[in-house]
Write a protein that binds this DNA or RNA. Sequence first.
DNA 1: GTTGATTAAATTGTACACAATCTAATTGCC
DNA 2: GGCAATTAGATTGTGTACAATTTAATCAAC
Lengths: 147, 147
Amino acid sequence: MGDKYDCLKISNQLCFPLYACSKEIVKRYKPYLDPIDLTYTQYITMMVVWEEEEITVKALGDKLFLDSGTLTPVLKKLEQKGYVKRSRSKDDERNLIITLTKEGLELKKQACEIPAKMGKCVQLSLTETEQLYGLLYKILGSFPGEA
Amino acid sequence: MGDKYDCLKISNQLCFPLYACSKEIVKRYKPYLDPIDLTYTQYITMMVVWEEEEITVKALGDKLFLDSGTLTPVLKKLEQKGYVKRSRSKDDERNLIITLTKEGLELKKQACEIPAKMGKCVQLSLTETEQLYGLLYKILGSFPGEA
DNA sequence: GTTGATTAAATTGTACACAATCTAATTGCC
DNA sequence: GGCAATTAGATTGTGTACAATTTAATCAAC
């Protein structure tokens, strides 16, 4: 046991459980997001808009680690559903400003219960959760040019 | 500070850094995977095939947390590149057996350096890496019917 | 003040990822 | 044996993700 190819075993990878865990948890949001007709990507986008009320696509992308290629269709969908408004900045026409609508604010009330429900689905103690959170942000923080 | 909507702040989520971290690390594989013409999904699929030499799509899906909707096109692509063979099981025609080809085995040698190179990109101590690994598998293990 | 570089979004093309459905093979049960 | 239920893959449709390119607006230098 332990040949020179051990490093290529899936069980020796750190990225794989990260990738799998992320997908599995995102999948578990579905039952809670379906009733308010949001996908996970739309949900985290709304989270930022709920916090900021008004934000550019660029700033949104920086916070969410997503580029315009992903965000443009997501934001058009959210506008179509009536939760945000898309309009060019007067100061700088290159910037697209995303604004929360009244309907978008209404949605926030309905989303309020989701984090608690999801919390129960992850079977970690408070300490473990904090540890995991800290390690993940340590990695994210180490990447150049990111939050 | 600390209103009833704090739970909806992106900075209070555990899933979000997991999702972001997974994406950012997978993205960083690209420079190492491009030379051997594999995507990340194709790479982890090959990892299992390198280990098993012969495996059904079902078993592959269980290990990778992927379903046939994702794996079918990935495996067809890998077959097209000549790294695996797809053939029905004689015992049970429902099973599709994935077999490693000589070219697929050759590829393993070239992939050998990738884990070490990627390791350097994640700035965690050995202890932290082990902690993170343990926490991720604890979550994955808590999900019903999964590895 | 004009032009070259930079920047923000949008667009295009490729590759997942998954729900839902479909098809074919096998298993259970009588 | 015969048929319902189950199982493995494939297919279809929707929605990301992201690289690469394009377009339009702004900035920078001179």
